[in-house]
Nucleic acid binder design. Structure first.
Lengths: 197, 197
DNA sequence: GCCATAGTTCAACAGATGTTGAATTTATGC
DNA sequence: GCATAAATTCAACATCTGTTGAACTATGGC
């Protein structure tokens, strides 16, 4: 009963967009390997062959859905830089957790779930966290040892993401944002501007 | 030409042990889904059917190889508790990184690579990090908010593991242990005994 | 030395997966 | 309006997956 009529549809049904939306959901939940083209197509309400038609294959769809971040690095950077240096840790934790929480942690979980099988995902994560955010922040603050500090910041934020969104260790997984900022920000602040020796 | 003669082999060839060793390597590198029974069997130099014969299937082999930690939680806990409270952070970072480095990061990477598809791995990680180590340490130190502190410690250590062993962000991925201890231990110490408010 | 048994390989299966080409239907350009 | 092109579904393929049962062979108890 679910069989659809063949041939071109009426205008207005944007199959491409539907696939991207569905792909985001499924990739987030299952990771690259676990997600199947058929599952994505079914969720989008179209045939699996559409993935090849519009994106050239599974990899193309992945690149166009998950790797295209749904938030703007420049916007995040602006938010993080807007305020006194000594409160940058707070702003970073609050900004990231707010953004990540908004998608139920899915955005973050998708990255981690796929980091294993897709090397490009590790690069995307690096481009975003290290290059687009932390290095710029540190350059703005004029501190030394920026490379090391940037990766240290990454350990804290990535670890926070894993514990909160992937493995769900309580109470951290459910604690409210204000508490999270209060307990974690000082540690991040040390990585940003504190004494490392 | 590679075809082996059928039937029972001469004594001394421990197929079971060979499979476990090979499984550890392959699961570490590919994660649970990415690792195939055939690849593991080939690496062990035996037929894929041996996996079912000895372990009842892929899951059984996974449980007997990766989930059987190659280090003893009690031993680690003892090392961590042996010394002044205010240096516990240092001992934790040093102990963990030493153990993880010893396997080239493979032990840790295996857990993370499999955390996505195997819920039991998340539980194993929680049992080990939170229950076996951090909660005991915190109980010994007699601080408050142990559950929250334990998960905070987990964010730092898991994040460190990911950045050093999975995504390999430099310079942190290659920095020596002493430096790592120096820069990270103070943050861990705050999560253990510091003021969270 | 005989023989049941445990260890091993082999061939094959059933299911799933990404992809492809043909068939079919609608939209668009002229 | 008509012809071409675009969009879509469908059926099928080749490949890979974990698993199974049968066939074969060395071991070890007697």
């Amino acid at each position: 009963m679910n069989q659809k009529r063949r041939g071109r549809r009426a205008a207005g049904e944007d199959t491409r967009a539907a696939l991207i939306a569905a792909a985001r959901e499924v990739f987030v939940e299952k990771g690259y390997d676990g997600a199947t083209v058929r599952a994505i197509a079914t969720k989008a309400g179209v045939d699996a062959a559409m993935v090849n038609h519009w994106f050239g294959g599974k990899e193309g769809l992945f690149a166009q859905s998950v790797l295209q971040l749904p938030f703007d690095p420049a916007e995040i950077l602006k938010r993080v830089l807007d305020g006194p240096v000594e409160e940058a840790g707070e702003r970073i934790v609050r900004t990231f957790v707010t953004v990540w929480d908004a998608t139920g942690g899915g955005t973050f979980a998708a990255l981690i779930r796929s980091v294993t099988s897709q090397p490009e995902v590790a690069n995307a994560l690096k481009s975003f966290l290290i290059n687009a955010i932390f290095k710029n922040v540190l350059a703005e603050f004029g501190v030394e040892q920026r490379e090391l500090r940037a990766t240290l910041c990454a350990t804290q934020m990535v670890g926070l993401g894993i514990v909160r969104y992937v493995v769900h260790f309580e109470p951290l997984a459910s604690v409210d944002i204000d508490t999270l900022v209060k307990v974690i920000a000082p540690n991040l602040q040390r990585y940003l501007t504190g004494d490392l020796d």
